Computed example of a mutant assay.
Amino acid sequence: MKGFSWFMYTKVFGWKFVGKLPENLKKYVIIAAPHTSWKDFFIGVFAKYALGAKINYIGKDSLFKGPFGFIFRMTGGAPVDRSKNNNLVDAIVDIFNNKEEFRLALSPEGTRKKVERWKTGFYYIAKGAKVPIVMGTLDFGKKQIKFSEPYYPTDDKEKDFAYFHSFYEGVQGKHPELF
């Protein structure tokens, strides 16, 4: 699967990697942005398999129903019921605390639509689980995914978010007007 995905990602799609995921860390949160198109999912899945990385993700529960739900589960996804008022952050922190190895990819926007502010769940998950955040771009302009070094959130949320946002400056989503 790794060889096929690498071929598809680099030769067929024409994408590349800049930087790499941390090899020495078994637990971290990956934030992938900008998330402006359904195509982001396929780029991310091919990247995951091309890198041979064990990465999980969450998605709205409706994606996991019907004839294609098994594909999302097979690729490391877990459904989330966004209509219920549950404490998803605490539930995911518990997963991190109960697993020896766990990497979770999230979109900080939480949607493909344009948002004024990123969601903060990824930040509180990382803080609660005491794991770093790795930033990854979905840059359709340069056709690349660029990875940051692991970043451990501090107690200064404003400073941390300014740092996150600066990493994504100049990055172009599939639909740039949505980022």
Rank of each mutant, 00 (worst) to 15 (best):
141 G>S: 05
75 T>A: 14
96 F>Q: 10
23 E>A: 14
46 F>M: 13
104 L>I: 10
49 Y>G: 04
100 E>F: 09
94 D>I: 07
56 N>D: 12
115 V>Y: 02
62 S>D: 15
45 V>I: 15
23 E>Q: 14
131 V>W: 01
67 P>G: 14
43 I>M: 08
38 W>T: 13
107 S>V: 04
61 D>E: 14
101 E>Y: 12
152 Y>D: 10
130 K>P: 02
56 N>R: 13
154 T>M: 07
62 S>E: 15
142 K>G: 05
100 E>W: 06
62 S>F: 13
91 A>K: 15
153 P>H: 05
96 F>N: 08
57 Y>P: 07
115 V>I: 07
67 P>D: 05
37 S>M: 10
54 K>E: 14
126 A>Y: 04
35 H>F: 10
88 L>W: 09
141 G>E: 06
122 F>P: 02
147 F>S: 01
102 F>M: 08
27 K>T: 11
84 K>A: 12
83 S>L: 08
114 K>T: 14
54 K>H: 12
47 A>N: 13
110 G>W: 05
111 T>Q: 12
67 P>T: 11
102 F>K: 04
26 K>C: 08
32 A>L: 06
62 S>T: 15
24 N>E: 14
75 T>S: 12
59 G>W: 06
99 K>Y: 09
31 I>N: 04
41 F>I: 10
132 P>V: 06
85 N>P: 00
68 F>P: 01
26 K>E: 15
94 D>W: 02
56 N>P: 04
152 Y>T: 13
72 F>V: 02
109 E>I: 00
48 K>D: 03
81 D>H: 09
92 I>M: 09
39 K>L: 14
60 K>S: 05
83 S>T: 14
76 G>A: 04
150 P>N: 09
104 L>V: 11
40 D>Q: 05
33 A>G: 01
33 A>R: 00
138 L>K: 00
101 E>A: 13
54 K>L: 09
117 R>S: 09
64 F>V: 03
100 E>A: 15
33 A>S: 08
64 F>N: 03
129 A>K: 01
154 T>C: 09
48 K>C: 06
49 Y>V: 03
126 A>T: 08
121 G>P: 05
50 A>H: 11
103 R>F: 00
59 G>R: 07
62 S>W: 08
152 Y>F: 14
126 A>H: 07
139 D>Y: 04
66 G>W: 11
27 K>A: 07
89 V>L: 05
143 K>A: 04
109 E>L: 01
101 E>S: 14
104 L>R: 12
36 T>V: 05
88 L>H: 12
61 D>C: 04
58 I>L: 15
96 F>I: 10
95 I>A: 04
106 L>R: 00
28 Y>P: 08
117 R>D: 11
129 A>L: 01
131 V>S: 00
108 P>W: 01
150 P>D: 12
25 L>N: 11
61 D>A: 11
148 S>A: 03
40 D>F: 01
73 R>H: 15
154 T>V: 10
100 E>L: 13
123 Y>S: 10
29 V>K: 00
152 Y>V: 13
38 W>F: 07
